[in-house]
Amino acid sequence: MLPDFVSVNPETKEEALAFLDSIGDARVIAGGTDLLVNMKRGESCRNVVDIMNVEGLNRLSVNDGEIVIGSTVTHAAISTITILNDMARSLSAACGLIGSPQIRNMGTVGGNLVNASPAADSISPLLIHDAILSIESKDETREETLENFIIAPYETSLKPCELLTSVCIKALPGYREGYRRTAKRAAWAISRLSVAWAILEDEGRFVDVKLAIGSCTPMPFRPRSVEEFLRGRTKVDPTIGEAVVMVTEEIRKITGDRPSFAYKLPVVSDLVQKALRG
């Protein structure tokens, strides 16, 4: 049973922001795949602002290598729009693995980010594309990097009066890109470990490497020291081996030793190694 809330269905962004400003304790709903489950499990809620009808929020635009994804664009759209397949393959691959067809038709990229689960599939690919979020309230518009936006598992910097309106990423032309995860089963599973990568190579050398590891630490993260280490190095097995060890060290540095690492670290190592080898 859902709590007895009152909902509004604004059609413009201004209307939505005005509601958020005046109501104070409103919860924003888009696809509802996370929020309604939480409510059924007992989360209380008195006011709901449903943003699925807000004009413009479901738009996707591409301009000069910059891709702006509206916050209510669904996972289904991200995984099937050809231009994203070309310009941000890791993201479209990741969104195509989320939940089930029904969940992908309902769930949105904004919802995935605001919910900020450590296992959210869309976060790692957005990290390697240096995603910048547009966040609006009635009186202010601000931008924040995705890295700063998520401050703890299931916790973001979003204030109650604010709305995440879009995510901006840069295309990475020339990079080979991908997303891989392990899960208990192929469909309808929470990802247990994931790696997103974008790698630029030239004549057997790593020119630029971007990696993001999901589900292993409280928040998906970029192992920056490893990216730095690989820059300009020849693509040979010992270098790749060293990079893989560095990744596991970074994970240990963030979380300390965990019982699950007996399983997780070898799997991460394998995923990273495959990503680097290509």
Binding site: S7, N9, I29, G32, T33, L36, V37, K40, D50, M52, A76, G99, S100, P101, Q102, I103, N105, M106, W188
Partner: peptide, 29 residues
């Protein structure tokens, strides 16, 4: 299940499958 895992509540909205157990009725207007 009531929480978007089993699919017995599936309906098509604009011809795409959705879980009606997690869809507010006001959304289909």
């Amino acid at each position: 299940c009531g929480i978007g895992e089993c699919g017995t509540c599936t309906v098509l909205i604009d011809n795409e499958p959705h879980y009606s157990c997690l869809t507010l009725a006001s959304k289909v207007n």
